[in-house]
Design a protein around this nucleic acid. Structure first.
Lengths: 249, 249
DNA sequence: CAGTGGTCTAGACCACGCG
DNA sequence: GCGTGGTCTAGACCACTGA
């Protein structure tokens, strides 16, 4: 709770320093998912800054989705539920605008040395090992996505030995490994089904598929997952929102 | 500048009322694109609220992209340039991560009574007329997108008579018609090229294409444009960002 | 230099959740 | 009733812009 390297020699605004300090406490695991942060007045007193400065830092964390504020109760480290994950990171809708809720089957896990592509996508070193997870996702019992998920073994020790893997992964990442996914980038490309995937998804060769490649980022802004999916949308649609809260890079 | 219906009977927070009042002044055209807003202290004095309250309202408008703040100079109504539009609303990248800068050719314009689909997408009434704009977009002289753009004639009177149509439209919408696009929703779907589009884009029938349908929304949160594009991405990628917020310090 | 937005403070009161 | 976050005020000082 005490002052770390003390304040005024840092040229950045105070609220930015407070924000970063709290971010570190969360990413380090000192504040667990679901845990309450100290109250605004408490933090202000601890750090020797004013109420308003702490508020500005907490508001920023709330906007980033790192923290949840509840009037009358307190401020809590976000605890991703399968519903949260699905709401924030799943973008496929039916023609009448309802979100698709997929299931998973035939999940297989292996570990291996990372390939060149995997190392580049995940920004990891030569020789590092990864966990590869392959599965088929279904919508109303129809298989429609074949996906491969790759994560660095160093961040997820022991995941490959898990007996059962849940349908949504990001809540598992947070609860079991303290890895909070806050942002992701999808790259989309239309392709035609080859022989291999057409048998997996029970469709004709040459049918149009959507290839989605995603890199997901953690609190430290480093990649924590790469996944590549082939989707037989067949009347479903991938929906992207543009223009809200984007700032020039 | 005087107080309109006066403040305290409105149950909403003061800053929200200030924000809405300024939004109305912009969308009504009382404040033109590029025009300076009154200074924070001026607005505070005019409305009889404090500096901080005005600031909170202006910060919100800046985040929404409605307004641009420049330290030492003032706060200005956003003036969309072709570069802004391209940055915020164009999502196609080359394999090595550079944004594609397309050109347009063969632009054709007609007006007509809106079809059922157009009426639903644009939320306009039976019998309303629309302007339809068709064009081919190119990347390095290669045609790669065939698109149809539909806008309600009521919001864009006389656009159909324009001799020349620029490459980016949203800056034209704002400068000529006072329509500011602040948000859009893209629906993506992989398809295969039929005979018609394959000749337009000089590709083989059956080649994989990306179909992108977009509805763009104005300041009043109503749809102002519907566009449907068929894209021969051919190694290019559509990129979508998920989860809010950018990099920690 | 005066005027603008950006940061920070200290304190007030309100609205909510819960015992 | 008490502690929480949510709103609002009044005033201070800094950093930047441009005449």
């Amino acid at each position: 709770m005490a002052m770390p390297t003390d304040l005024k020699l840092d040229p950045r605004p105070l609220y930015a320093q407070v924000r970063e300090l709290l971010t570190r406490r969360i990413s380090s695991g000192a504040l667990r998912p679901g845990a309450p942060l100290p109250s605004e007045l408490q933090i202000a007193a601890d750090l020797g800054v004013s109420h308003g400065t702490v508020r500005k830092a907490l508001d920023a964390l709330a906007i980033e989705g790192l923290v949840v504020r509840r009037q009358g109760k307190g401020t809590f480290v976000v605890e991703q539920t399968p519903q949260d994950v699905h709401f924030r990171f799943f973008n496929i809708y039916t023609a009448d605008g309802r979100k698709v809720i997929p299931d998973s089957r035939e999940t297989r896990i292996k570990t291996a040395k990372a390939t060149v592509v995997e190392r580049r996508r995940l920004a990891i070193d030569t020789g590092a090992r990864v966990v590869r997870l392959r599965r088929i996702r279904t919508h109303g019992d129809q298989p429609f996505i074949s996906e491969t998920i790759v994560i660095p073994e160093a961040r997820f020790p022991g995941l490959a030995e898990h007996k059962t893997i849940p349908n949504t992964l990001y809540d598992l990442y947070q609860a079991e490994f303290g890895v909070l996914v806050v942002r992701a980038e999808d790259q989309l490309e239309p392709v035609v089904a080859d022989k291999n995937v057409s048998s997996q998804l029970a469709i004709a060769e040459g049918a149009p598929l959507m290839r989605i490649e995603r890199v997901a980022f953690g609190l430290d802004n480093c990649p924590v997952e790469w996944r590549s999916s082939l989707c037989n949308l067949a009347g479903l649609q991938y929906v992207a929102h543009l223009g809200q809260g984007m700032a020039p890079a």
